[in-house]
């Protein structure tokens, strides 16, 4: 696989690579902000294209990196190959009635699951690194970080319906 990047004046940046099987994928980040992805099957003459907004492109990127995407809840797995293949998962959860009104300390999130709540989104505002005394409210979305097993434990033990 060889990746080429090229700056096309007036258009934007082009990334193109050919897979080992001979198919070609090209991505264009245009100056207008939209992203176009073209795929050209080996032996074909005309590529097919998809046009995406930046949000859609990021979603596609998440899928391609192998993260699980659920309807409203997303998770991203980041692998640090330099650190003995450390894999860290970040997952968003919408709080369930079981945790509403309770603080992070009361729920014993770290002790029970090993995960950490790194941010909470409340009414379109983000609270980064909430303190242990932070209490969840209805409608909050929590961003949780940990290994994928720990995230599963969190989902089972804490975010119970």
């Amino acid at each position: 696989m060889t990746l080429r990047s090229l700056n096309l004046p007036g258009v934007g940046t082009k990334y193109e690579f050919e897979t080992d099987k001979g198919d070609t994928v090209a991505i264009f980040f245009t100056k207008t902000g939209i992203i176009q992805m073209y795929t050209l099957q080996k032996g074909c003459k005309t590529p097919s294209a998809a046009e995406m907004s930046p949000v859609e492109a990021r979603r596609l990127g998440n899928i391609l990196t192998g993260a699980i995407i659920e309807a409203d809840q997303e998770s991203v797995e980041i692998a640090f190959s330099a650190l003995a293949d450390l894999r860290i998962t970040i997952h968003t959860f919408f709080v369930t009635p079981a945790v509403v009104g309770k603080t992070i300390e009361e729920l014993q999130i770290r002790a029970k699951t090993g995960t950490t709540v790194i941010a909470v989104c409340r009414h379109d505002r983000n609270i980064i690194n909430p303190p242990p005394t932070f209490a969840f409210e209805k409608g909050d979305a929590a961003l949780v970080i940990g290994e994928s097993d720990q995230i599963k434990t969190f989902e089972r033990e804490i975010m119970v319906n």
């Binding site: 090229l6 096309l8 004046p9 007036g10 258009v11 082009k14 264009f28 176009q36 073209y38 294209a49």
Partner: peptide, 28 residues
């Protein structure tokens, strides 16, 4: 018209065509 040419290349999804690069260089 560079403006019309580039907008239509993007809108008609022709950026990957090999001719596109040639067209852009010609407009430059």
């Amino acid at each position: 018209s560079t403006a019309i040419v580039i907008t239509s290349l993007i809108e008609n999804r022709k950026l990957m065509f090999k001719e596109t690069e040639t067209i852009i260089w010609v407009t430059i």
